[in-house]
Amino acid sequence: MEQKKIDRINELAQKAKTTGLTEEELSERAALRREYIESYRRSLVAQLDNTYLVDEKGNKSKLRKKD
C-alpha cells in the first residue's frame, strides 16, 4: 500500500477524534482500511509461504495451511 494512502488513513483517524467525519469521509476511511487490511494479509501470507520448520534432525518442512 502506498504511503500516501496510509497518511490519509491517519489524517481521517485524527479528524474523527477531534471534529468527526462526514458520511463521505466515513466511506473513504472504510475503503482505505479494507485496502490496508488486504495488503497486510497478502504480505503475511507471502511471508508464511516462505517459512520452513526445522525438526531436531535438521530436516526442513514447508509450513502448511490448516484446513
Rank of each mutant, 00 (worst) to 15 (best):
D55S: 11
E11D: 07
Y36N: 15
D55C: 10
R29H: 14
R29F: 14
A16G: 06
R64K: 06
E25F: 04
G58Y: 05
E23F: 08
D49L: 11
K5F: 01
K65H: 04
D55P: 10
K66L: 07
E38M: 14
R33N: 08
L63H: 03
Y36Q: 15
K66M: 03
A30W: 00
K5M: 04
K62N: 09
I6K: 01
E38K: 12
E24Q: 14
A16K: 06
E35Q: 12
E11I: 05
Q47H: 14
D49Y: 08
Y52M: 10
L32W: 02
A30D: 07
V54R: 15
K62S: 07
I37T: 08
E2V: 09
M1A: 13
Y52P: 01
D67I: 07
R64S: 09
R41V: 10
D67V: 05
R8V: 02
E25S: 08
Q3N: 12
K57A: 13
I37H: 07
E35F: 02
N50L: 14
K60T: 08
E24D: 15
E56A: 12
A16V: 02
D49E: 15
I37C: 04
D55I: 13
S43K: 06
E2Y: 08
V45C: 01
E35H: 05
E28F: 02
T51G: 03
E23Y: 11
R41E: 14
K62G: 03
E24C: 07
L48V: 13
Y40A: 10
T18R: 06
R33P: 00
K65T: 08
K17F: 02
S39K: 00
N59F: 10
A46K: 12
L48A: 15
R34S: 14
R41H: 09
G58F: 08
S43N: 11
T18E: 09
I6W: 00
S27T: 14
Q14A: 10
R41Q: 11
L32F: 11
I37D: 07
L48G: 07
I9R: 00
L53C: 12
R34N: 13
I37W: 03
S43M: 05
Y40C: 05
L53W: 06
K60A: 12
A31D: 10
N59E: 14
K66W: 03
